[in-house]
């Protein structure tokens, strides 16, 4: 299983590299255009691979399950964010090298006098810069999530289209009909991707709707949204995975929000998500009425006990609503009558806001489960753990005798907690491949 995933992972890296370098191979194939100075050709090459990477960003976010499965959706999203900076650096290096080695090209920056090929190139670069800036500082500039998604999509399409126009207008590397055909193919591939993401996929999602069964209030300002499939068998998922939810809108509107399943994977006729009231969308979950139609795209993610079936024991470390994917795993393990040793270390502000408190207590009779509640503000007379989930606390509860792949640890909660726990586990000598994090702040 591990070996297969690794091979798949390597395969997709090679495909990525191949597609990134494809433009250079196309240029070198057959009769080449007249060669120019080394720095100029290097600058052009960086521009070409930058454009290919920019176009490939659409593949990364198109949620193709086969690409995501060897890594998990979170790694693909981190990669999407990090590679965008590399892409920007490469594309920026393209004009910078020109300006350094041929300062007269600086006049191309004047949009009033510059030829159209330069206008298209400069505008593409500006679109990309704005796109990256609003993505990095979305929260600081208080750009609402859905509005950001719209701008993100529009700027991305603008940047790639303008960059393609730039190449066509320069036309230096279009010297044979074969190369023109290859470029056309590259462009069509990209247009197909756009059509798939914006039209085909939403169309398929619309044909598999879900209906709200009920919403249930939980402790800790959270609501459980229970859904059932309409006219189809529902969705099979691994416990701990997540799906993108569209509500009060059509799948074509691109207004989706990712949430972890909290229900057991053993039951696909009814799915549930437990959601904390945090933003505009999550605050409206409680207003959903039975019978309301919603859409789900999923499942995604690698955060699951099912990815590590050979472990002898599992440890779950949750903070607040980070319990949601853990509940899915605990419920599933209980339904499967799994009797492997489990530990749940669960941090909350106070006793009253411990989401699923009662159900977790009840699990102790069905599962071989040890629960460690950690409260920031414990009630009077509290005998359990208090404060935050620290290195010292983890040292007490994380099994010290372990071999690789023997004890798998799952972490989900607020970012500071997760960072602290990951650092502590690393200090405790836990092998990196044995702990897994689910971060809700991907976008």
């Amino acid at each position: 299983m591990h070996r297969k995933k690794t091979l798949q992972g390597v395969f997709w890296i090679l495909v990525y590299l191949l597609l990134t370098l494809a433009p250079l191979a196309i240029i070198l194939a057959g009769p080449r255009p007249e060669g120019r100075e080394l720095w100029r050709e290097f600058s052009v090459a960086l521009g070409f691979v930058g454009l290919a990477m920019m176009a490939l960003q659409f593949v990364l976010t198109a949620r193709f399950k086969t690409i995501k499965s060897p890594y998990g959706a979170d790694v693909v999203y981190y990669f999407h964010r990090q590679i965008s900076l590399v892409t920007f650096a490469l594309i920026l290096a393209h004009p910078l090298l020109l300006f350094i080695f041929a300062p007269q090209t600086l006049r191309l920056l004047n949009i009033f006098t510059a030829p159209w090929r330069a206008r298209a190139g400069v505008t593409a670069l500006v679109a990309l810069a704005v796109l990256i800036a609003i993505s990095i500082w979305r929260k600081q500039i208080k750009l609402e999530y859905n509005r950001w998604r719209v701008w993100h999509g529009l700027l991305a399409i603008a940047a790639v289209t303008l960059a393609m126009m730039h190449i066509l207008l320069v036309g230096h590397y279009m010297n044979t009909p074969l190369k023109q055909a290859l470029w056309l193919g590259y462009g069509l591939f990209w247009v197909f991707l756009l059509l798939y993401v914006r039209l085909i996929k939403p169309f398929l999602l619309q044909r598999k709707p879900y209906e709200v069964v009920k919403t249930v209030q939980e402790r800790g300002d959270s609501w459980t949204l229970v859904l059932k499939p309409i006219g189809h068998p529902g969705m099979s998922f691994m416990p701990g995975q997540f799906a993108w939810l569209t509500a009060w809108a059509s799948p074509f509107s691109d207004q989706e929000h990712p949430f972890s399943f909290s229900s057991s994977a053993a039951c696909t006729e009814q799915l549930s998500f437990t959601i904390k009231e945090r933003g505009d969308f999550t605050r409206k979950i409680k207003e959903m009425s039975p019978g309301q139609r919603v859409y789900l795209d999923g499942p995604f993610g690698a955060f699951s006990v099912d990815r590590h079936p050979h472990a002898n024991q599992y440890v779950f470390i949750a903070g607040g609503i980070g319990i949601s994917p853990m509940m899915s795993m605990l419920r599933t393990l209980a339904d499967r009558q799994d009797q492997r040793p489990l530990t749940l270390i669960y941090g909350n502000r106070d006793w009253e806001s411990v989401t699923f408190r009662e159900e977790i207590e009840a699990f102790q009779s069905r599962l071989n489960l040890k629960v460690v509640h950690v409260l920031e503000n414990p009630p009077e007379g509290w005998k359990g753990e208090s404060g935050l989930i620290t290195y010292e606390l983890l040292e007490r509860y994380v099994p010290s005798e372990r071999n690789r792949n023997d004890c798998e640890i799952f972490i989900c909660g607020p970012k500071p907690m997760m960072d602290a726990v990951e650092t502590a586990l690393s200090r405790l000598g836990v092998y990196m491949g044995d702990y897994h994090s689910e971060r809700f702040d991907l976008v």
């Binding site: 890296i13 250079l24 070198l28 060669g35 050709e41 090459a45 693909v76 490469l90």
Partner: peptide, 30 residues
Amino acid sequence: MRQRISTWLTILIGVITVIFSFIFAVLQSR
């Protein structure tokens, strides 16, 4: 930890593409 996988992937791919771009430039330049 998973963030680190993606960071290393990004660095790896960034370095490889710059190297290949340079090789391209050497092959293509006069």
